[in-house]
């Protein structure tokens, strides 16, 4: 059975989902890609926007979420840390 995701794992999954959609994603796609409920996704998004890892834009009356440069750097750090965890068997 897969272990429960930590907070940082969820944030990482959300940012990766946005990167996979070429840096821009609709809320529904983000919810399904990161496997979260709507309310949980919104609570995490608030934090991500507050920390300037993600920004919200409106286009054609639709909301989109974009990953910022800081968000890309964060994902890079996260990948390094996951690789570290994997190498050390943690």
């Amino acid at each position: 059975m897969a272990r429960k995701r930590t907070r940082i794992d969820i944030i990482g999954d959300m940012l990766l989902a946005i990167i996979k959609k070429k840096g821009e994603i609709k809320p529904t796609h983000l919810m399904y890609s990161s496997n979260l409920s709507h309310s949980l996704m919104n609570s995490y998004l608030e934090e991500l926007i507050e920390k300037n890892l993600v920004k919200k834009i409106q286009r054609d009356n639709r909301d989109y979420f974009l990953i910022t440069d800081k968000g890309y750097e964060f994902v890079q750090k996260l990948n390094e840390m996951r690789e570290f965890e994997r190498a050390f068997g943690l």
Binding site: Y72, V75, Q76, N79, E80, R82, E83, F84
Partner: peptide
């Protein structure tokens, strides 16, 4: 190498 692999994944 761990750091390089992490950057490459990105």
């Amino acid at each position: 190498t761990i750091l390089k692999h992490g950057k490459k994944k990105n």
